[in-house]
């Protein structure tokens, strides 16, 4: 299993262009974190990569072969997304066991025993109707389908929404265990960045329909710094670097710096701290890129 590639992906809904010439390569055998603000285009990108949504322009291939309507490619991909509690005319009366039975039919490598274990682990009542499930239980169901699919490329869109902290930790542990045992590729789109950050080998940041960053997480964070001190000293120290979200508090200033490569130290009397992924993301999103 090689690379899931998207080239020049454009998606338009009427006059709105949601994705703008996105190029992305997903190499197998990694855990990716896909982060971005609401409306950035994360779900649209994931649904196009998995042939659940046609792109307006562009191509998606797996090992060089188109994914669209391709049985071989689709058999290696699982995109587990939120299950609707309401259908067109009323509540979703399908039961949990019906969903799992359907998943068993369509996912070629479905692991029934593992699915049963996960249902027990998440304390899900298989005879309950989807419309009666809480938000957390719905998330548990999407996680079960994703993990039990045993697909080589497994994508989870907001998998921990509604889960309590115990269930979230259980999920992260399950992903790590599954990755360690099988080497499956996971792409996890989440807003709870800090909890999941330690899982991500590579982080992809999407903003306004474009990929602004795709990098190894450790390498990215090794060149991100939080620089604070007196305003003049900070301005001098960070001159020439990409600076995000400068904040002034009286005579002091705090900035987030993303250097091109790791820095030994900053000149001047400033305090330098490492930056967590969530804080870096926040700084980059809040007011865009500014150079000091």
């Amino acid at each position: 299993m090689g690379t899931l590639s998207g080239k020049n992906i454009v998606k338009k809904y009427g006059k709105d262009t949601v994705l703008k010439n996105v190029d992305i390569d997903i190499e197998t055998g990694k855990i990716y974190g896909l982060i971005g603000r609401n409306g950035a285009g994360k779900t649209t990108l994931l649904s196009i990569l998995t042939a659940q949504n046609p792109a307006t322009e562009g191509t998606v291939t797996l090992d060089g072969k188109p994914v669209w309507e391709n049985e071989e490619a689709l058999s290696h991909i699982c995109y587990s997304r939120e299950i609707p509690q309401v259908t067109m005319f009323g509540p979703n009366t399908l039961k949990v066991k019906d969903y799992l039975k359907t998943a068993k039919v369509f996912y070629k490598y479905w692991d029934e025993e593992y699915a049963k274990e996960l249902v027990k682990l998440f304390n899900l009542d298989a005879k309950k109707k989807v419309s009666k499930l809480s938000k957390g239980m719905l998330s548990s169901l999407t996680i079960i389908i994703a993990l039990a699919s045993k697909a080589d490329i497994t994508i989870l869109d907001e998998p921990v929404a509604g889960l309590d902290v115990v269930a979230r930790e259980q999920f992260y542990k399950l992903v790590i265990d599954e990755y360690a045992q099988t080497g499956r590729t996971f792409i996890i789109s989440t807003h709870i960045i800090e909890e999941a950050a330690s899982l991500f080998e590579e982080v992809i940041m999407l903003d306004e329909g474009q990929i602004v960053l795709k990098e190894n997480t450790e390498e990215l964070l090794s060149r991100a710094y939080r620089v604070s001190g007196e305003t003049e000293a900070v301005d001098t120290a960070v001159e020439g670097y990409k600076v995000y979200h400068p904040e002034s508090i009286g005579r002091n200033k705090v900035v987030t710096v993303l250097a091109d490569e790791p820095i030994e130290g900053f000149d001047g009397d400033v305090q330098v701290e490492p930056v967590a992924l969530q804080n870096l993301f926040y700084a980059m999103c809040v007011d865009g890129r500014k150079e000091a």
Partner: peptide
């Protein structure tokens, strides 16, 4: 048949079925 596209068909498409 009216229900199909919004419910069952959408569900199986999300699980990797092909449109044809």
């Amino acid at each position: 048949a009216i229900y199909g596209p919004n419910w069952y068909d959408s569900m199986v498409l999300s699980m990797g079925a092909r449109r044809r």
